[in-house]
């Protein structure tokens, strides 16, 4: 697993950590029962506060993605297919919303958007 932080994006650091670990779990990059780096080790490696890493981990725990075991660390829970699908879906929605905004700004019609989308889908094999 990799975690790459931007210090200029404006997105809170704990949010960036959370998103990247969540994506790694949904993509299968992080397998069930895998041990996450310790909050203190991760804070040292990324040169950020322990409070930031702790917050990211406890958010992930609240979302039901990981479980922290006293004295041992934080483990990845079995992948929840429904959650993974929801996560993917919300990303698709966000991408499409951005496309719609761009279309509105440039005077592109709904029919043209659909046409472009169909064309793009034909090129991809889903």
């Amino acid at each position: 697993m990799q975690i790459i932080l931007s210090h200029r994006s404006g997105e809170p650091l704990y949010e960036q950590i959370k998103t990247q670990i969540r994506d790694a779990i949904f993509s299968g990059d992080l397998a069930e029962d895998e041990l996450l780096p310790s909050v203190r080790g991760l804070a040292r490696d990324l040169k950020i506060s322990v409070i930031t890493t702790t917050r990211a981990y406890s958010d992930l725990e609240a979302e039901g993605l990981v479980v922290s075991v006293q004295g041992k660390g934080c483990y990845v829970l079995p992948r929840n297919k429904e959650l993974a699908r929801e996560n993917a879906l919300s990303k698709v929605e966000a991408g499409l919303s951005a496309a719609i905004d761009a279309a509105k700004a440039g005077g592109i019609t709904a029919a043209e958007i659909l046409e472009t989308l169909t064309l793009l889908l034909k090129e991809e094999v889903l």
Partner: peptide, 12 residues
């Protein structure tokens, strides 16, 4: 120095 301080608190 900053690294050493972070290293120091690895022990909670």
């Amino acid at each position: 120095v900053c690294d050493l301080l972070r290293e120091f608190v690895l022990d909670e």
